[in-house]
Design a binder for these strands. Structure first.
Lengths: 115, 115
DNA sequence: CAGTTATATTCCCGCTAAGGAATATACGCA
DNA sequence: TGCGTATATTCCTTAGCGGGAATATAACTG
């Protein structure tokens, strides 16, 4: 599990990071919110911790995990070389995401979609 | 090979994308510049193409590959939720990257590093 | 200290993905 | 049409990852 990129290749780990993006959480919190088995959560947290994505602090009998931004910044930095490719046509992503995950609510601009 | 994140987990694929970031290239170009075997390059390109990261056009007997930005934009969009975490201390990345890849040239500001 | 809760670790299994070698296909040109 | 070059595909093997179940450790509470 070398690079930061490999770490976030795992969907459950991304889900953990997304949850931690808003506030720190305990292992049990994550277990419940994600519907994962507890060992699974602990194992993913271990990977994330060893890769520098999270750190933990102790709160009585539980451990609260929070995000460390550095590896995410590294990924952000890698994307820099490509940003000029989409600084122009900024709505290509919108169309792309719509294909991935169908638009339930209108994505800005009250679009007349297909109608 | 579901997500865009899994695609860029592979170092050689990231290398291919980085090369294509500057200009389109043929399979042979990539083979040479990366020192990979030709089948390996073709296989990675196939993965990248099927995931929407690249597209190809035909130029006489070779195929020129170029980047399609959408999947990269998707990753960029995912990072959005974390950006507020580092909008403050902007130099944490610098330190982080220095640990990953030792600083040969001084990274801005003529730092007095450890001396 | 015993019991309980919270988290971590270990072991085993199945799967997938990457690499190498060989081969197939496609295309251009004489 | 036959050769050479460029690229794609297949087959095989191997390594590593994620999941589940069981178990271990740690820490609080009475």
């Amino acid at each position: 599990m070398e690079s930061s990129f490999a770490i976030i290749a795992e969907p459950n780990r991304r889900a953990i990071l997304s949850l931690l993006a808003t506030s720190e959480r305990s292992v049990g919190d994550l277990e419940e919110e994600l519907g994962l088995a507890q060992p699974s959560v602990s194992k993913h947290l271990r990977v994330l911790r060893e890769a520098g994505f999270v750190e933990s602090r102790v709160d009585t009998q539980r451990r609260l995990y929070r995000i460390r931004p550095e590896p995410l910044m590294e990924i952000d930095a890698w994307l820099t070389q490509f940003r000029r490719l989409w600084s122009s046509h900024l709505d290509a992503l919108e169309r792309h995401l719509d294909r991935i995950d169908p638009p339930k609510t209108t994505r800005r601009k009250t679009s007349k979609r297909k109608a």
